[in-house]
């Protein structure tokens, strides 16, 4: 029984996972004593907790997540960015121009225009208001060049891999720089066309085959082969 449970299983909403009194981590719900999956994905029962790794779903902003967003409009002294979620990211003018400043719209437009792509951090997110985002850090801010790709946000952990193994594999073998947003948006930049195409193909492969095992090896094999 134990061995059976420790294996990751494919589950659909409503599927029974376990009756063990474990901590519920994500995409599971307790109905009486039975733990039930609420999403399509892989069930993961560890020593003290149970969760379902989802294969489909929308991005919900979480504090300290790094996301990629597109500026949509300026309203008052804030920018509003599409962060591929059901909520818009709000970037305060204060965050860019410093505390107590009152930037004019034209000043704001000079910094960030509609359509600009930014790498940002979720500064605050609660149930009441739109999530606050921040670009006040060295690595954050406007992204000037690269190819923007969108994959399912639930597959981002797979793209990064254990301790970043997957993303390092792709980066090192294609010489591409990959900026990954937790919200499913990725910017890939590479000087060589071939490397860029290969990196994009690898990302697409992860998106399609996230539920399979030994994916890092498969991606490695694909990258080492010649054609794309």
């Amino acid at each position: 029984m134990k061995k059976f449970e420790s294996k990751k299983r494919h589950v659909l909403p409503g599927d029974f996972i376990t009756t063990a009194p474990l901590r519920l981590q994500g995409n599971v719900v307790l109905e009486g004593k039975r733990v039930i999956a609420t999403s399509i994905g892989l069930s993961d029962v560890s020593a003290d907790s149970v969760r379902v790794i989802p294969l489909t779903g929308v991005y919900l902003p979480k504090i300290d997540d790094l996301v990629i967003g597109t500026i949509q409009y300026i309203f008052g002294s804030s920018w509003f960015a599409d962060i591929n979620s059901c909520y818009q990211g709000m970037l305060l003018g204060q965050d860019v121009f410093g505390r107590g400043s009152y930037p004019t719209t034209s000043e704001m437009k000079e910094r960030l225009e509609k359509g600009d792509i930014i790498y940002a951090k979720i500064a605050n997110s609660d149930r009441q208001r739109e999530p606050l985002i921040s670009i006040a850090d060295q690595s954050l801010g406007k992204i000037d060049s690269g190819e923007l790709v969108k994959i399912s946000p639930t597959k981002i952990p797979r793209l990064i891999g254990k301790h970043g193994s997957m993303i390092q594999t792709i980066e090192s073998s294609t010489n591409a720089t990959i900026t990954v947003g937790q919200n499913g948006l990725i910017v890939v930049s590479c000087d060589e066309t071939n490397g860029l195409l290969k990196a994009l193909a690898a990302i697409r492969m992860v998106d399609e085959q996230a539920h399979l095992v030994n994916l890092t090896d498969k991606v490695k094999k694909m990258l080492e082969s010649d054609g794309v």
Binding site: P13, N27, I36, S39, I40, T56
Partner: peptide, 11 residues
């Protein structure tokens, strides 16, 4: 709905 990834107690 399940395909869209909306959390569901059951189909």
């Amino acid at each position: 709905l399940a395909d869209a990834g909306i959390p569901m107690r059951d189909l």
